[in-house]
Simulated scan of single mutants.
Amino acid sequence: MNRSSVSNHTHPGSPIPRNYTNVLVICLVLLGLCVVASLVLGSRPVRFHELIDGLFHPNADSYGADVVRKRISRTVFGLCCGAALGVSGALMQAVTRNPIADPSILGVNTGASLFVVCGIAFLNISTANQYIWLALAGALITAVFVFGIGSMGRGGATPLKLVLAGAATSAALSSLVSAIMIPRSYVMDQFRFWQVGSVGSANWSAIATFAPFLIVGILIAIITAPALNALALGDDAATGLGVRTGILRLAAALAGVLLCGAATALAGPIGFVGLLSTHVVRLMLGPDLRFVIPLSAVSGAIILMVSDVTGRLIGSPGELEVGVVTAFIGAPILILLAMRAKVRSL
C-alpha cells in the first residue's frame, strides 16, 4: 500500500462521507422514536396526555404519569448501555482487526460475570458500586488473557485465533460460574436475574455510577479514532505514520473494556449489540472510525432500545429480558457475517 493511500485513509482533513449527514439525521430520528416507544409501550401502554404529564408536569398524580416517570430512568440507562456497548464493539474490532469481535464473542462479558458471581458468593456484595469494580477487573483480565492466547504461535493474533480463544475462554469461565452457583442457592437467586441481561432494574443511582465510565471511555475512543484508522492498515504502515501502536492498542482496549465492563456490571452480560451496531454503521459509511465510533454509539442505543421494547411487548404482561432478545437477533447475524466474511481481518 503506498504512502498516498495511507494518508487518504487517516488524514484528519479527509472528506466526510457523502451520506454522513443523511445517516446521522436518520439515526437521530430513529433514536427519538425509540425513546418515545420506550416511554409509552409496555405491559401498561401510556396515552399521549399521560406522557406529557409524566414528562412536564411533576405534580400530576395519575397512574400513567407515574409509569412514564419510572420508565424515564430505564430509558436513559438503556441509551447509555447501548452507546457503551456499541463503542466498545467498534474499539475491539479495530484493536484486534477482527470484523466479528464483540465483548460477548471474545469472552469479556463472561469474565465480568465470573468476578461478579465470586463477589456475591465470597464477598457478599450487593450494590452497583461494588459490582462495577469487580466486573471491570474480570473484563480486563479476560481480555488480556484472550489476546495473549490468541497471539501465540505463528501469525500472531489472527481473527480466527482470537475468536477461538474467546469462545474457549467463555466456555471455561461459564463452567466456573455454574460451579460456584450450583451449591449456593442464595447466589443463584441473586445472580440469575443479573445474568440474563436487563435494563429493567435501572435507577438514577446506577446511571450516576455508570456515567463517568461512559464519558471517559467514549472520549478515549474519539481521541484515538484517527490513529486507529492507521492501525487498520497494518502495524508497519501505522508506525511509519508516527503511531505508537503498542500504546494505542492499550489505550483503545482499555476504553473498550471500561465501557463493556461498566455496562455489564449494571445491566448484565448483554451480547451482540457491539457487533450489530458497528457493522450497520460500517455498511452505511465505510471504515473511517472518526465517523464509525460516534454513530456506533447512536446505533447501539437504538438496537438496545428496540430490543428492550420488543421484549416488553412479546412478554406482556411480564417482559422478555433484553439480553435474550439481542441474542435471538444477533446469533443468526453473527453466523451470516462469519459465512460471508470468512473471518477476514479488517
Rank of each mutant, 00 (worst) to 15 (best):
V216N: 04
G246M: 06
T209P: 04
V325M: 15
N2R: 05
T224I: 08
T21I: 12
G64P: 07
S73R: 07
S201G: 13
V309F: 00
L295Y: 06
L39W: 05
C81D: 07
L28T: 11
P103N: 09
S43M: 04
S4E: 11
F272H: 00
S345R: 05
L123R: 00
I72F: 07
C27N: 09
T21G: 02
I149K: 01
T21A: 14
Y131F: 15
T10C: 07
I52T: 10
P212M: 15
G78Y: 09
G150T: 04
R344Y: 10
A227C: 10
R282E: 08
L254R: 03
I220H: 00
P17Q: 00
R184T: 03
L295W: 06
C260E: 14
S277Q: 04
I222S: 02
V23Y: 00
T158M: 06
C260T: 15
L219E: 09
D61I: 12
L33S: 12
V298I: 15
I223C: 09
F328G: 14
A137M: 14
T10F: 03
F191V: 08
G271P: 06
F328D: 12
G286Q: 10
G32A: 13
V322P: 03
V117P: 10
N2K: 04
D53F: 08
S299H: 01
L336V: 13
I180G: 02
R44K: 13
Q130W: 04
A157I: 06
V146H: 14
V108F: 03
S62Y: 06
P294C: 13
R71D: 03
C80D: 04
A267K: 01
S43V: 03
A265T: 11
A202Y: 01
F122G: 07
G330L: 10
L114K: 06
V40H: 11
G318L: 14
M92F: 14
G197E: 09
H9P: 00
V95Y: 02
D61P: 06
V199N: 07
G300H: 08
L41A: 14
T110W: 01
F122H: 01
S7G: 04
D66E: 14
R71Y: 09
M188H: 07
I120H: 10
K161C: 12
S73M: 11
V322F: 05
L276G: 09
L41S: 10
R97N: 02
N59P: 01
I293H: 00
V322L: 07
F115K: 08
F213G: 05
L266K: 10
I141E: 03
A263K: 02
M305I: 11
I314F: 14
M92L: 15
T158Q: 02
V343T: 15
G119T: 07
G54W: 10
S316F: 08
V187T: 12
L41G: 09
I182T: 15
S88F: 02
L295I: 14
F272D: 03
N98G: 03
P269F: 08
S151H: 12
S14R: 11
G155E: 05
F328L: 15
S174R: 12
N98A: 07
